[in-house]
Amino acid sequence: MQRCAWCSDDPLYIDYHDHEWGVPTRDPQVLFEFLLLEAFQAGLSWITVLKKRERYREVLFGFDPQCLARMTDAEIDERLQDPGIIRNRRKLEAARNNARAWLQLEDPVGFIWSFVGGRPLVNQYASREQVPAVTAEAETMSRALKKAGFSFVGPTICYAYMQACGLVMDHTLDCHRHAQLVDASATSGPSMQVH
């Protein structure tokens, strides 16, 4: 089965590629979780974050923004001792900060989806080399998130976030998921904008 070139043979990576990456989601909990996970990934490989994802769910209150927003400095210090996560104070403080910023948004889902006009952008890339690291939409999202008080939301992180949550669909044309996601959208999901 043909997959995107970035997907290794790690079963965790394959499962993520085949079932989550590029699938449009409007679930606020999933959108929030991925926003934090992408921030934790900054400077590291995505597989590193995937392998720690379950532990993050355990120590970060299931990515509940209400609970995370109330996390104390002492609780952050405690988590910095946990080898099951990426022990970076700035990223943990950003998770708390981003939870607070998320809760200030009147309509977080609508806000996130506004950067693609409410419908997934479907790209037609033949190879991994054609897929950009940043787009104008990601730059706009980054500026808006920063203005709203978020941190660790640079344009590269925002574009990876858009890919992960299906705001953009960057499975390459040779990947089996490209056709599956386009077909699924045509029959039941939100209409996609083909680029």
Rank of each mutant, 00 (worst) to 15 (best):
Q2M: 01
Q2W: 07
R3V: 05
C4F: 10
C4N: 10
A5Q: 07
W6T: 00
S8F: 03
S8R: 00
S8E: 09
D10K: 12
P11W: 09
P11A: 02
L12A: 10
Y13T: 03
Y13I: 01
I14W: 06
D15T: 12
D18F: 03
H19Q: 10
E20C: 05
E20N: 05
P24T: 09
R26G: 09
L31R: 00
L31C: 02
F32W: 12
E38N: 11
F40K: 00
G43F: 11
L44W: 05
I47Q: 11
T48M: 14
K52E: 10
R53N: 11
R57Y: 12
R57W: 12
E58M: 02
F61S: 10
D64N: 15
C67V: 14
L68D: 10
L68C: 10
A69D: 15
R70K: 09
M71S: 08
M71T: 08
T72Y: 04
I76K: 06
I85P: 01
I86S: 01
R87Y: 03
R89D: 12
L92S: 15
L92G: 15
A94W: 15
N98E: 13
A101E: 11
A101C: 11
W102E: 07
Q104F: 00
E106I: 08
D107F: 02
F111Q: 04
I112A: 01
S114T: 01
S114G: 07
V116A: 03
V116M: 07
G118E: 02
N123I: 01
Q124I: 09
Q124A: 04
Y125T: 00
Y125G: 06
A126S: 12
A126Y: 08
A126T: 04
S127I: 09
R128W: 12
E129P: 05
E129H: 08
V131Y: 14
E137F: 07
A138N: 14
E139L: 10
T140P: 06
S142R: 04
S142M: 05
S142W: 04
S142I: 02
A144K: 05
G149P: 07
G154C: 12
G154P: 14
P155R: 13
I157E: 15
C158L: 08
Y159G: 04
Y159P: 08
Y161K: 07
C165V: 12
C165F: 07
C165N: 15
L167E: 09
V168H: 04
V168I: 10
D170P: 00
D170T: 01
D170G: 01
L173P: 02
R177C: 04
H178K: 04
Q180I: 02
Q180R: 01
L181M: 07
V182R: 12
V182W: 09
D183N: 03
A184F: 02
S185H: 09
A186K: 03
A186V: 00
A186I: 02
T187D: 06
G189S: 05
G189E: 13
V194K: 06
V194P: 09
H195D: 14
